[in-house]
Design a protein around this nucleic acid. Structure first.
Lengths: 121, 121
DNA sequence: AATACCAGTTACAAAAAGGATACTATGAAG
DNA sequence: CTTCATAGTATCCTTTTTGTAACTGGTATT
């Protein structure tokens, strides 16, 4: 399956815009953790260990995910002059553009859980 | 990292609702293909090979993804009495509840691409 | 010096996802 | 009988993702 790197001049019938846009989004915030991390950071900036605990994610994965989010301009990493040194991760203004996505997923997950539970109970 | 199977009685500070809801959503439509397939099916029902071609996804993966979507009540599978037999996949009414998610991701991906391109160009 | 906390990194293993190819089974067309 | 199209499945392999545990390096506390 080839990469969808068809920025321009692509055959619309084979690689329609909607499919492309969704894949673009998934490239940036897809995977198991990125949207979870962003949703946690919406409560305010957090330090590395705090994020690790709150998301229940190991330091290795967390480090990688945060680097990718930083590279995509969604979070900032700030080293604080405390002892011991702490590092704060915060959302950028650009990450606000993801609000609709996160709110929609939050709402859907909530409703879906309700429906699954009432079906089970 | 433990499963987030805390349906009730969970410690809100460790497993807040937003994180949980998003993880619930990802459990159902996370991964590389499910939202892409749903977005394609929003144009109307498709047969197996059509989906395979349009999404550029191999039959093995497509089969697995469609089964999972069917199990979660998001698509229906209909065997048609044609020769050779064809199978139609279509969205269920319940899948409409994902519209906000899909539209939000579509919009974000589109805008993000615009921004990345203007920054590169 | 021993201990502990912070922010990671390294090394390794396991699991999940993805992909290529070939194959089944059915039925029609040539 | 061969070829083609349908919808998958089976097998094998590679890549990606995720996880565990231990470890570095810096600073402070006891």
């Amino acid at each position: 399956m080839k990469k969808h790197n068809c920025i321009v001049g692509d055959d619309e019938s084979v690689c329609p815009k909607v499919k492309l846009s969704i894949q673009d989004t998934l490239d940036v915030v897809g995977g198991k953790w990125k949207l979870v991390l962003i949703s946690i950071l919406r409560d305010g900036k957090k330090r590395f260990r705090e994020l690790s605990r709150e998301a229940d994610i190991s330091p290795r994965i967390l480090s990688k995910e945060l680097q990718e989010l930083e590279m995509n301009g969604l979070v900032t990493r700030t080293v604080c002059d405390t002892r011991p040194v702490t590092v704060e991760y915060a959302l950028t203004p650009y990450s606000d553009t993801l609000s609709e996505v996160i709110i929609a997923m939050h709402k859907w997950g909530h409703e879906h859980r309700r429906k699954v539970m009432e079906h089970a109970g």
